[in-house]
Design a binder for these strands. Structure first.
Lengths: 212, 212
DNA sequence: TGGTAATTAGAATGCACGTTTTAGAATGTG
DNA sequence: CACATTCTAAAACGTGCATTCTAATTACCA
């Protein structure tokens, strides 16, 4: 390198996340990202090959940060703690949480999909997350009832907590104390059969892989 | 009228819904809507003043269809039935369900909001829906615990069933039988205090209003 | 101190979109 | 049968976008 960079890769990613969080995918134009960072439009293209690459990198980073919190708890057979861990994760960076949880990826990536390396990295992250769920739930009966157990786990650990969180994420501001209470009550009233510890190792997914 | 129309207002609405359902808001361009209907682009402007008006009309229609099913059950104090009613409503028209439940309105309306009459009609629909929730839940204690009860109700009756439905909506195809089971189990494990019938009339919201 | 590669800087390009315009075709009314 | 009106039809316009291009800066190194 011969000239010190004024703008980092992360500057652009943060700006893109913030713009999507505040105004939806359409608000994250290249010019808006550049303006928010205070850089000329062209500078983005020294770090990212396209808009899809910027959004894809941002998405992968947010997703990885999310699963980094959940995955270990799932592998430890603690679904309740995993579900509750979503709340502090979301409040630690509200914009990132809005970016990841409030927008279907289809709206971000449909028109122009991110470059292959990013897509593959995301697929790996998704596979790891899925494997963690499978490792957590008890193996019981045939394929159909196994699908049901997995669907129950994903609902209890991911979708329901996100649904509880969503109204507050949309509104912004602090999280009311009853959000955690509702998640706890949900897990008490709709218990999940957990894999015994000695089986969990066998079901464990591939080792975590570093993602850009 | 002096010339029979080849394309109806509803043709354009259906096309817009389908395009958003399949490819997100960005896919519903005026040209795409026209192409899908088989009409020239300009014809849309004989029925709608703008793209925002098309999407807004579609949104209001989907929302009204949804609340028409839920609202009466809420006013009858039957939250469990209301929650379960979401499933047949969604399967009756999957595209409409994807359109309404899979996309945050911010992504549809942020850049250009729909014309005032449509915004007002939507606000009325939302107020009615909210009033139905308030009429359903038991009034207990101070403001904070009342907020909590209302949040519980909205989660149990709307957000959680939608979260259970969402993966299958994303994937498409038929709904697995355990979706209804999960909703029933959820309501059994996390019961909701319901307003006694004689109080419900007082809390009832404004009469339903016809929407375009 | 001048060469060089990385970066900033910002204008330029081309394309897709929402919207408008212009022209023509269809249909009920007098 | 003409007229007014409502629609189809398709091209045209202006804007904003992603991306590319050209030039000017910067900082390290020989």
């Amino acid at each position: 390198m011969v000239r010190t960079a004024r703008f980092s890769e992360d500057d652009f990613i943060q700006a893109a996340m913030a713009l999507v969080a505040e105004g939806g995918p359409a608000a994250a134009t290249m010019q808006a990202i550049a303006r928010r960072v205070g850089a000329p439009t062209g500078s983005i293209y020294h770090r990212f090959e396209s808009r899809a690459a910027v959004l894809g990198t941002a998405w992968n980073a947010a997703y990885a940060s999310f699963t980094r919190v959940l995955t270990p708890l799932l592998h430890q057979g603690r679904p309740r703690e995993a579900a509750l861990a979503i709340l502090p994760w979301a409040m630690a960076d509200e914009r990132r949480a809005r970016f990841l949880l409030l927008h279907e990826p289809v709206a971000l990536f449909e028109d122009t999909p991110p470059p292959a390396p990013l897509r593959e990295a995301l697929e790996r992250l998704e596979d790891e997350f899925d494997a963690a769920f499978r490792a957590c739930v008890a193996v019981a009966g045939d394929g159909a009832s196994r699908d049901e157990e997995l669907a129950r786990a994903k609902f209890l650990i991911f979708d329901a907590p996100v649904a509880i969180l969503r109204p507050h994420l949309v509104r912004g501001g602090t999280l009311p104390p009853f959000a955690a209470r509702m998640i706890a009550e949900l897990h008490a009233g709709m218990p999940l059969a957990v894999t015994p510890a000695h089986d969990r190792h066998a079901a464990r997914g591939p080792r975590p892989v570093a993602v850009a």
